[in-house]
Amino acid sequence: MYAIMGATGQTGGAAIAALLSEGRDARAILRDPAKGQHLAARGAALAVAATDDVAALAASFTGAEAVFVLNPPQPHAADYLGAARAASESIATAVRRSGVARVVALSSQGAHLAEGTGAVRTLYDFEHALRQTGAQVTFLRATYFMENWAEVLAPVREAGVLPSMLLPLDAAIDMVSVRDIGRVAASLLVDPGRHAPIVNLIGPRAYAPTDAAAAFAELLGRPVEAVPVPRDAWHAALTDAGLGEDYAAAIVALNDAINAGTMPYEPGVGETLRGTVTLREALAALLAAEAATPASASP
């Protein structure tokens, strides 16, 4: 049996879906069991645990052959790094108490760097905490999520405009779909011997914001233009979107690092895998999911 944190989120959801599609026994770890009923209907066991509840986390890990762990963002924390560090220690303590032998941890490109990576700095701490557990840990260091473009679906649909903090607009960077992250995470849980302790995951090719705009235009059947968000407007745009001040600052710093090219994969370490999901396929799924969302969800 494999236990999956964040089983109703993007990456955890993709990982448990991959396991269930293979007929594997899986335990979904989530905060709200009501949100996991679709997983229960597919045969998953449900466990309720928050990242700050060591006892519940340890219980949810106990008996698992391997667990998939992640440190989800806390966008409203007054001290974003401090809150993430506390969650890292909580998860690591739960791993030790449960005695689980193997762990696959979602990490990121740039997680080996102790500074200059903005929000990714939390994963430097996460990796360090998990290395102290005594478990066999595989770090899945993914690159920029294709699904991050979900944040701009409204202006894309309503105005044919794709605002971007990735600059310049025609500069291609590695991106990967959460579907590929989930698929690879499931593979690492089931068959760890085939891979290195650090797995770098990128998409089928690099993409620029202009590529995302072109893909949206093709999918929607009308023009979509990528436009730059001025650097001095980033923080306000993020807080206006509902992020806390500290998290917004961390995202600004992350985008600065991406744009400057100062957040590479760790040179000469681990193995690099390529996903198969294209940017167009990932964006098509975002549009389909948005279209399927009940209109009653809006005020």
Results as ranks from 00 to 15, higher is better:
His235Asn: 07
Leu81Asp: 12
Asn259Ala: 03
Ala249Cys: 04
Asp240Arg: 15
Ser21Gly: 11
Arg97Ile: 06
Val103Ile: 15
Arg274Asp: 00
Ala250Ile: 00
Pro73Asp: 13
Leu273Tyr: 02
Gln136His: 08
Pro73Met: 11
Leu81Phe: 05
Ala292Cys: 05
Pro168Ala: 12
Leu220Gln: 08
Val69Glu: 07
Trp149Ile: 02
Gly160His: 02
Ala150Asp: 14
Ile4Cys: 07
Ala111Arg: 08
Ser107Gln: 14
Pro228Leu: 09
Leu19Ile: 13
Arg97Asp: 15
Val67Ser: 01
Gly9Ser: 11
Pro209Lys: 11
Gly9Thr: 07
His76Ile: 01
Val178Glu: 14
Ala105Trp: 13
Ala292Pro: 00
Pro163Thr: 04
Leu113Ser: 07
Ser90Val: 00
Ala58His: 05
Ile181Glu: 15
Tyr2Cys: 04
Ala28Gln: 03
Leu123Met: 15
Thr210Arg: 14
Gly275Asp: 07
Gly63Trp: 04
Glu271Cys: 02
His235Pro: 00
Asp246Leu: 05
Ala92Leu: 10
Gly182Arg: 13
Leu254Phe: 13
Val252Arg: 07
Leu219Asn: 09
Ala241Val: 05
Leu219Glu: 11
Val184Leu: 11
Ala172Gly: 04
Val95Asn: 04
Ala248Asn: 07
Ala154Pro: 10
Ala56Leu: 08
Ala7Leu: 06
Glu22Trp: 06
Ala83Pro: 06
Tyr144Leu: 15
His76Met: 10
Gly203Leu: 03
Gly134Thr: 04
Thr210Asn: 12
Ala56Arg: 04
Ala295Leu: 14
Asp170Phe: 11
Ser296His: 12
Leu46Met: 09
Ala292Asn: 06
Ala92Lys: 09
Ser90Arg: 00
Met175Phe: 06
Phe126Met: 14
Asp180Thr: 14
Leu220Phe: 11
Thr93Met: 03
Val67Gln: 02
Ala28Arg: 03
Asn200Trp: 07
Val224Tyr: 09
Leu273Lys: 06
Thr122Asp: 02
Met146His: 15
Ala206Lys: 15
Thr117Tyr: 05
Pro264Tyr: 01
Glu147Gly: 02
Ala92Arg: 08
Leu20Gln: 11
Leu153Pro: 05
Leu273Pro: 04
Ala64Ser: 10
Ala14Tyr: 04
Gly261Thr: 06
Asn255Asp: 15
Pro197Val: 05
Arg131Phe: 00
Asp246Glu: 13
Asp174Leu: 02
Asp174Lys: 02
Arg222Ile: 10
Pro73Asn: 13
Arg231Phe: 08
Gly261Asn: 06
Leu20Ala: 13
Leu162Phe: 12
Gly275Phe: 01
Ser108Lys: 04
Arg42Cys: 02
Asn148Tyr: 04
Leu287Gln: 10
Val152Lys: 03
Leu283Trp: 06
Ala285Leu: 14
Met1Asn: 00
Ala288Asn: 06
Ser296Gln: 14
Ala44Trp: 03
